[in-house]
Design a binder for these strands. Structure first.
Lengths: 336, 336
DNA sequence: TTGTAGGCGTTATCAG
DNA sequence: CTGATAACGCCTACAA
């Protein structure tokens, strides 16, 4: 395996010149550049990325911290990230986290002496220590779908989105609207729900009082949604519309409703959250979260922060919109 | 940022001892080990992974080459890979490929002077040059869902699986069974379909002749399936059952059928392929491909190959099975 | 069991 | 513009 020294010898130049050619430095005469390029080709030389990372104290790698619970949106997000990476010579290191302790370890590993130049942190709230350590020893981090003013964040306004969904149901005539919410932090069951505030605000805005048990926290995934609906339907006055905090939960709600013989949207209206594309054929009315765009924006922000670590962190919001399909309708007379 | 030398000084030992402690070498007295550990803690020292990778000529990284077309199975696969990685100190580098040229570059980048110690290659056929280069300069590679006898491969027997699906339809009484197939290599539209052979064998085995136009190649995804069904339903004698080569295509078939007013399974039976979990609520009858297990097995094989590059490559098959749900039934009298 | 010295392949710095 | 040369931080002999 040839090294830079072999190339230098082959081309009859100094090793510095070869390095400059490799790094597209303008400080090389065209003649020598050609000689070096030819030598590289003859020897089939490839620079060692390990040596490079070591030498320039930069790995050309971005780290992605992602909870393993993640649903199908991950793909879309990955595409967005890759989109932003095209043309750069950065690659992506994926580190998945299953449990809270994995997260601690991942945070720990990623910030000090990282294998990467920066990190993308998905759908999980940074711990206090993490933020403190980052303050002490800056390392570029961008949060996705979670906001922390002390760090770069790219997210949507969950409150506005949830409000929009609830208002839509209210507009259809529903008064018994329930929320199947999701913890902001998958690893922390004491963390608030992402949609709770928007839900309450929308109800308050319409002068509708919040019935007991209508605001539920559920596990992510279909199972969580299904269980939540079961609970809701056991209430003395079950809701006529349900807003879910994820499409997967919405599917669970849908299934559980069907199981009980409730038809959607005749007996129950459902709004999802995220537009995960796998629910298209279900005709799920949902909040469209521009996941692809979030991934791209976050990656761009991270690359920027890597290039200029002194830039003050910003929070970037992306707009959501309601995607009306076929799981919502007016409440049924007998039940509404 | 402290280095190993700082730790050595702090602990009052030689740098070699620190290195040995870091690498869990048994050749350190318990006493010194403790002193070193304490020094490490005091200094909050973390070894530089870049320097490590450089020094030991091993990156502790596995590379994942994945076509961006990939559907929801990717998540399950990723989980399988991560499962196999738990307990090792390997991390995963993801390199996605959008077009055929990306693939060339990815193959190129991954084998010579790679940033990784080995590579997992998904759902895409290795090019001739790739295999040749690998033969000349060994670099551990494991193929997933594609088989090449010259390399490690983990896959299912598509022929057996497709046969099983077709036989199931035949057993229900169908005689007009069509196939919506998928190219073995997403980047090569001249590559054969993954299910074609099993399809034909099953028909032949039952003495059913293959009608013109019943074996179709389709693009991956719902759109491909939908388009393929449109074509099939335009035939003078449309099929009464369709076997698809992916769940996503099956969903497309399902949607297109519904669009045309055909009910499933009354007017049309559908079998999917892969059990992608997002089709559960559709009740799709499908071939269960153990994607998680494939990811895990492939990663284990790769780790093995990294540890012992001299081991001869093997092909590992994982069994599939038919998952009967609700999209198949006997052919309708008037149409069957 | 321990410390020391050399090497890994680049990049960066510095004279020329 | 170019070529030496010194880091870079760790690992691995080798010698003690």
């Amino acid at each position: 395996m040839p090294t830079i020294a072999d190339v230098a010898r082959e081309a009859g130049v100094g090793i510095g010149t070869v390095s400059r050619v490799l790094n597209n430095s303008p400080l090389v005469s065209e003649q020598l550049r050609q000689r070096v390029l030819a030598a590289i080709a003859r020897l089939e030389y490839r620079p060692s990325s390990a040596a490079r990372a070591f030498g320039r104290r930069r790995t050309q790698t971005l780290e992605l911290l992602v909870p393993l619970f993640i649903g199908s949106l991950f793909l879309e997000l990955l595409r967005g990230i890759e989109d932003a990476l095209v043309g750069t010579d950065y690659t992506l290191l994926a580190r998945t986290m299953k449990r809270a302790e994995d997260r601690e370890r991942a945070f720990d590993a990623c910030c000090s002496r990282s294998r990467a130049d920066g990190a993308l942190v998905l759908w999980t709230v940074p711990t206090r220590q993490f933020v403190e350590r980052l303050a002490a020893d800056p390392f570029p981090v961008v949060l996705l779908n979670v906001v922390d003013p002390r760090l770069w964040s790219v997210a949507v306004d969950h409150t506005a989105a949830a409000s929009r969904a609830v208002e839509y149901c209210l507009g259809l005539g529903h008064r018994r609207v329930a929320l199947v919410d999701r913890h902001l932090d998958v690893f922390d069951s004491t963390s608030p729900g992402i949609c709770g505030r928007g839900f309450r605000e929308a109800l308050a805005g319409a002068g509708v009082s919040l019935a007991d048990g209508y605001q539920r926290m559920a596990e992510p995934g279909q199972a969580g949604g299904a269980r939540a609906l079961d609970a809701l339907l056991s209430l003395p006055e079950p809701p006529t519309a349900v807003v879910a905090a994820s499409d997967e939960q919405a599917v669970g709600v849908f299934l559980a409703a069907r199981e009980r013989g409730w038809q959607v949207p005749r007996d129950l209206s459902i709004v999802g959250y995220s537009d995960s594309q796998y629910t298209q054929y279900l005709g799920l009315t949902t909040i469209d979260v521009p996941v692809h765009e979030i991934g791209r924006a976050a990656t761009r922000a991270l690359l920027g922060a890597v290039a200029d670590p002194s830039a003050a962190p910003r929070t970037i919001y992306r707009p959501t919109q309601l995607l009306v399909r076929h799981t919502c309708g007016p409440p049924r007379a007998g039940r509404g």
